[in-house]
Amino acid sequence: MIKDITLGYDQQTKELYEMQKASYLIEAKLINYYEIPPLVETFEQLVKCGEKFMAYLEDEKLLGAISYTVENQELTICRMIVHPHHFRKGIAGTLLLAVEEKAISNKSIKVSTGKDNTPAKNLYIKHNFTLLQDIEVAPGLYISLFGKNLLG
């Protein structure tokens, strides 16, 4: 089940925070960069980030989440979080489809990931995102920016 959630000083947000650390540690290892913002942010910063969140729940247990912002005609996916024990079960794809429904009135979706994060890049390509460019964001660290235009 996918549902919108509001972050706060509660148990679910604490679980999300811990899951985010575990999930982004995997990406950090893939791209050999350990200063990824979601990996180094504090609990307080997460609670106050201002992003909208959707959670993937199974039997009331949090297994994944996606966050996004909307500005003008563009929805930007900020975080894709899946508990490492639940990788490769379709959770990220389900979350992508759910966020697309939120973007129907918008014209485009953007998302980025580490250039060397092949599993994430494959996920976005599978869901019809187009690689727009690779950007060097720190010396020797590149991210891949993907976009998808929606009909309507």
Rank of each mutant, 00 (worst) to 15 (best):
M1D: 12
K3E: 14
K3I: 08
T6Y: 06
G8P: 00
G8T: 01
Q11C: 00
Q12C: 03
Q12N: 05
K14Q: 13
K14R: 12
E18N: 14
E18K: 14
K21Y: 11
S23P: 04
L25Q: 15
E27K: 01
A28D: 06
K29P: 04
K29Q: 15
I31A: 05
I31V: 14
Y33R: 07
Y33M: 05
Y33K: 03
Y34F: 15
E35Y: 12
E35L: 12
P38V: 09
E41C: 06
T42A: 07
F43A: 05
F43K: 08
Q45E: 14
Q45T: 02
L46Y: 01
L46V: 01
L46Q: 07
V47A: 09
K48F: 05
C49F: 05
G50E: 09
E51S: 11
E51R: 13
K52F: 13
M54V: 15
M54E: 13
L57A: 13
E58P: 01
E58M: 04
D59S: 12
D59F: 07
D59K: 14
D59C: 04
D59G: 05
E60Y: 07
L62W: 00
G64V: 00
A65C: 11
I66K: 02
T69D: 06
T69H: 00
V70D: 01
E71Q: 03
E74C: 11
E74K: 11
E74P: 00
E74T: 14
T76D: 02
I77E: 02
C78A: 01
M80V: 12
I81Q: 04
V82S: 07
V82R: 04
H83V: 10
H83G: 13
P84W: 10
H86M: 00
H86S: 03
F87V: 11
F87Y: 13
R88K: 13
R88A: 08
K89I: 03
G90E: 01
G90I: 00
A92K: 02
G93H: 10
E100D: 08
A103Y: 05
A103M: 06
I104Y: 02
S105I: 09
I109P: 03
I109D: 04
V111P: 07
S112G: 03
T113S: 12
T113Y: 08
G114D: 09
G114N: 08
K115R: 12
K115N: 11
T118N: 12
T118K: 15
T118H: 12
T118I: 15
T118Q: 14
P119L: 14
P119M: 14
P119E: 15
L123A: 15
L123Q: 14
I125P: 12
I125L: 15
H127R: 09
H127L: 10
N128I: 04
F129H: 04
T130G: 01
L131N: 05
Q133C: 05
Q133G: 00
D134S: 11
D134V: 03
I135K: 12
V137G: 08
P139D: 07
L141I: 15
Y142N: 12
I143L: 10
F146K: 02
G147Q: 07
G147R: 03
G147W: 00
N149A: 06
L150Q: 10
L150I: 08
L151M: 08
G152H: 02
G152V: 02
